[in-house]
Design a binder for these strands. Structure first.
Length: 962
RNA sequence: AGGCGCGUAGCUCAGUUGGUUAGAGCGCUACCUUGACACGGUAGAGGUCAGCGGUUCGAAUCCGCUCGUGCCUACCA
């Protein structure tokens, strides 16, 4: 309770730049959204836990981040205001490849390479880099007003998270699910590391199909193979044909000489022709060259037939065959030269155009080279040696509904569930090793004596197999997504106190432990579909696999086996430009959120994104829309000015107005508004609307319908509160007298002031998750900078039960609005000057006559009516209008534009006629009458009657026009 | 090669199990600088719901085909 601020505090036009920075800083500095350990707060409340998809440290905020964070922030603020314990954990991802590339690029500018620096110095350099630039995106987040818990901020390479990654790796290894082996992987020759299947983008390109003749070793002829990559022939170890292919049956078992492979005077290499189903008779020549080290299919053939797999390309995709004339050539140079040489030898039969799908590295855009190399894999379809289901199976079970029950993890939109299951059902083992320096180093040591591997939590001194001390640590690091896949529980403190290792580095082990007990599993994940497989699927795989021992605050232990990391997944669309084009640097259509925020204000941009965020569709971001929402912010600002002005005047006149904001404590339900008998119609009505809009917003947000929630609030605030309620309130407060000292201090004035304040304050709270800055500013001003809570975000979210529903008032008000609108339109068509008041005649039911009579002041103010007569006879003619409920005539001497009026009436008549025909058709249709549900028939009858009335009235009006 | 989605007012999009006369914002037209607000007010115009066929008493909504468009997945040399 405090003195309201005076109106001069608020400038006439809303300027977001003046207030937003201040509140953004205030929220962080006051630690308003840091969640204390739950013992000290209400522990019977619901919990809402949400993990921010960690942006890359290399990242700059883009519109996708802003959409993602706006949605999460709306939900988090909403839950917090509902009294839930709302924890939103922020952090950043070390983003192995991306970051390493960034720093390497920087080194290159200095004329250095990472190899010159060495591993140790290079990683130091990356840490320095991350210190300098890594926080940029978090600073930008603060500008968005994201209500995260900054005290729990993490970085995926932090010590505690690194230990968790190591722990997870070791457990999986011990369960026999991580193995090391030589397989064909996707190799990026530009950054020289393996990447996973997901990090490869496929693109159709026009290439060539070469037919190459391989001479039979016995000189009896030749066999022609078809290939798109002639340069790999240097590594061929066989030619395969289909066993059923009659053309080649006689050749199976013979050998051919691979052209161009003779080195130093030696003859060309001799390789067998063998039978394998993989060779498809209908493709090319039906004979395929087999290069096990450079093609995944060929590798499989090689395995089946125990072929050697010589590598002919080095890690940079240059030919590595000492002595060969092609040695040192890039793969494409080699191709050119080999094709020319084959041609010269007369072994090149033909070259045909051929469209092929190329794999490109997502990060570098370089063509992926399938390469045989030693890598670490996570077996996803294998039963762990400790028993139980495979990782993929658990990840499927968590999402599939069992026995018709709701699945443990629910997807919105539902479509993504299908996509996820499809992918998870066909998943291959995951290559988790990367030949990078920046990342979590694999905790494995190779023994130089016995070649075996020792995997250990602490650096071992000797090989666990042969006791040799000649051991060296694995140089590979883990795929970044391996660590991010663990985040739902590692950010909450796992494996603190649950691990076999002491966790002495944890500053306050108990706090972290409580986090896991209190907040795991998390509630919701909000993200884009682009990381559905990369991240969402991996979190489900890893989360549902591990058994987590969770120490409870009371000292007991809870074991969570195969628990889901989150219960809900909400997938949003992509933010595109206004023309629905994908934003990209090359197209130059990237919108920088900070730029747009500076021009329109964060609130307006947030509201734009929310109001366009319809599930399952991308957002075509349009500035026009944002301009509209800036206008909305300005509208609210000015509505606040109107309120403050009246509160000032009231105060000057001796009124004492109490503002009251309910708390968000779920145990304390505020007293609902009790309206006395003398409450005016518009006040009953606005409370009814407030009741209705809180129902709608609650329903919409429950279903992730940010668009519907935003639109409902917009419509309420502008279309109902400002357009009608504020105008009508002037009747009680400022009309016809503006000077309160001269007006009577009657109950209605006081009630109206209190209602106006209460309604407006409630509307602010309703809006605050969407426009946190503006509402914070006005709310503090409302309390003259001494509010009952530190932030509007810490107050109660408006609930339907807080406001009295009043269907009778709602209906009466609707009639009054119809009447006012009809009179206004009529006045316009009659050419009545705006300021001139006119008498009206009204013909209507007794109920409506009584209503209009009781609310004459509304008609005076809103429709410039200066007197009203009621007629028993229906009204028609050029100065009258009819609705189904009433006829109204405006008495004005000037004549209406007859042709225009005739056109309008004719149009209406046609519309009614069409409606009548349709209704008649239905009502005389026996099947319809027999089969349609009663309320539909009833509704149609009513509509038919109304249309009939309108038709008749319009017809009469048209007849009088002549 | 498979799979998924989309096509509704000039533009960007809603339209919840089929049900009364299909909605919003922006834009457009006309009038109004009224003491909260011209980032405003008031009143309007604007759609054969891509096309064709089917199911139904009833279809923007369900089914089939055609056209257009976007995306994802895949080891065919």
């Amino acid at each position: 309770m405090s003195k309201p601020s005076s109106s001069p505090d608020l400038p006439k036009a809303y300027d977001p730049s003046v207030i937003e920075e201040h509140w953004a800083r205030y929220w962080v500095e006051e630690h308003l959204f840091d969640v204390p350990t739950p013992q000290s707060t209400q522990d019977n409340g619901e919990k809402f836990t949400i993990l921010l998809p960690p942006p890359n440290v290399t990242g700059r905020l883009h519109m996708g981040h802003m959409l993602n964070q706006t949605e999460m922030d709306i939900l988090t603020r909403w839950h917090r205001m509902l009294g839930d314990l709302a924890l939103w954990v922020p952090g950043t991802d070390h983003a192995g490849i991306a970051t390493q590339m960034m720093v390497e690029r920087q080194l290159k500018e200095e004329g250095k390479t990472r190899q010159e620096l060495g591993r140790e110095a290079f990683t130091q350099r990356v840490w320095c880099w991350r210190k300098l630039y890594g926080g940029a995106i978090l600073d930008q987040m603060k500008r968005l007003g994201a209500s995260v818990d900054w005290s729990r901020e993490y970085f995926t390479m932090d010590d505690r998270l690194s230990i968790a990654v190591k722990e997870a790796f070791i457990r999986l290894y011990e369960q026999g699910l991580i193995y090391r082996g030589a397989y064909i992987v996707n190799w990026d020759p530009s950054i020289q590391t393996a990447v996973s299947d997901l990090e490869v983008e496929h693109e159709e390109r026009l290439g060539k199909l070469y037919h190459v003749r391989y001479p039979l070793a016995d000189g009896s002829g030749s066999i022609t193979v078809a290939t798109t990559r002639p340069e790999t022939m240097l590594g061929d170890t066989a030619v395969a044909v289909n066993p059923t292919d009659e053309r080649y049956i006689a050749l199976i078992g013979k050998t051919v000489r691979v052209p161009l492979t003779g080195v130093n005077g030696k003859p060309d290499r001799e390789i067998p022709i063998l039978a394998d189903d993989w060779a498809k008779p209908e493709f090319g020549t039906g004979a395929v060259k087999v290069t096990p080290a450079h093609d995944p299919n060929d590798f499989a053939i090689g395995q089946r037939h125990h072929l050697a797999a010589p590598s002919i390309l080095d890690e940079t995709a240059h030919i590595a065959l000492p002595g060969s004339p092609y040695n040192g050539l890039d793969r494409y140079e080699a191709r050119e030269k080999i094709v020319a040489d084959l041609e010269a030898l007369g072994l090149l039969e033909s070259i045909k155009d051929h469209t092929l799908t190329l794999g490109l590295s997502q990060r570098t855009g370089v063509v992926i080279e399938p390469r045989l190399s030693l890598q670490w894999f996570l077996a996803v379809n294998k039963t762990p040696n400790t028993g139980g289901k495979s990782i993929a199976q658990n990840a499927i079970d968590a999402v599939e509904s069992m026995n018709g029950e709701k699945p443990a993890i629910n997807f919105t939109p539902e479509m993504y569930k299908k996509i996820y299951l499809e992918w998870m059902t066909n998943i291959h083992d995951w290559c988790i090793s990367r030949q990078l320096w920046w990342g979590h180093r694999i905790p494995a040591w190779h023994c130089k004596s016995c070649n075996q591997i020792t995997v250990a939590r602490d650096t071992p001194t000797h090989c666990e197999h042969c006791n040799s001390t000649d051991i060296v640590q694995e140089t590979d690091v883990l795929d970044t997504w391996f660590s991010s896949g663990l985040l739902p529980f590692t950010t909450l403190g796992w494996p603190a106190l649950t691990s076999t290792s002491p966790m002495s580095w944890i500053p306050d082990p108990h706090a972290l432990t409580d986090d896991l007990a209190n907040f795991y599993p998390t509630t919701l994940l909000v993200t884009g579909f682009d990381i559905l497989f990369f991240w969402v699927a991996r979190m489900i795989m890893l989360g549902c696999h591990f058994t987590l021992d969770i120490p409870m605050p009371d000292g007991s232990k809870r074991t969570l086996a195969n628990a889901v990391p989150f219960k809900e997944v909400y997938i949003h669309g992509l933010v595109r430009d206004a023309n629905r084009e994908k934003m990209s640097k090359t197209k130059g259509n990237v919108i920088n959120p900070i730029d747009i925020i500076e021009r329109f204000g964060t609130d307006a941009v947030r509201f734009t994104l929310a109001s366009m965020a319809s599930p399952g569709t991308d957002i075509a971001f349009s500035e026009a829309r944002t301009e509209g929402y800036r206008a909305f912010a300005n509208k609210i600002w000015n509505a606040a000015r109107f309120l403050f002005m009246n509160l000032d005047r009231a105060r000057d006149a001796g009124y004492k107005i109490t503002v009251k904001t309910p708390t968000n404590d779920p145990n304390q339900t505020p007293e609902p508004w009790a309206l006395p008998e003398y409450t005016p119609l518009e006040t009953r009505w606005i409370f009814d609307r407030l009741h209705a809009v809180s129902i709608e917003v609650d329903r919409a947000l429950t279903n992730y319908r940010f668009d519907e929630a935003a639109n409902a609030i917009y419509q309420f605030f502008w279309g109902e509160l400002c357009d009608w309620y504020l105008e009508l309130v002037k009747l009680r407060l400022v009309f016809p007298e503006y000077d309160f000292t001269k007006s009577t201090h009657n109950d209605t004035t006081a009630l109206t002031l209190a209602s106006l304040t209460g309604v407006f304050e409630s509307a602010l709270r309703l809006l605050s998750p969407f426009m946190p800055f503006l509402t914070e500013e006005i709310w503090h001003a409302l309390y003259n900078q001494q509010p009952p809570a530190k932030s509007i975000a810490l107050t109660r979210y408006p609930q339907p039960a807080d406001f009295p529903a009043d269907p009778i008032a709602a209906s009466a008000m609707q009639t009054m609005q119809d009447l006012i609108t009809t009179i206004r339109a009529l006045r316009k068509d009659l050419g009545v000057p705006e300021k001139e008041s006119t008498p009206i005649n009204l013909h209507a039911s007794n109920r409506i006559v009584a209503l209009a009579d009781a609310n004459q002041d509304m008609l005076v103010r809103m429709a410039r009516v200066n007197s009203m007569d009621f007629t028993a006879e229906p009204l028609s003619g050029t100065n009258a209008r009819s609705t189904a409920d009433f006829d109204v005539a405006v008495l004005y001497e000037r004549q209406i534009d007859i042709p225009a009026e005739r056109e309008r009436l004719t149009k209406d008549l046609a519309k009614y006629e069409k409606g009548l025909e349709a209704a008649n058709r239905q009502l005389s249709n026996e099947s319809f009458m027999a089969k349609a549900p009663a309320h539909i028939v009833e509704g149609l009858r009513k509509q038919h009657a109304e249309t009939k009335t309108l038709y008749d009235k319009t017809k009469a009006a048209l007849d009088t026009l002549g």
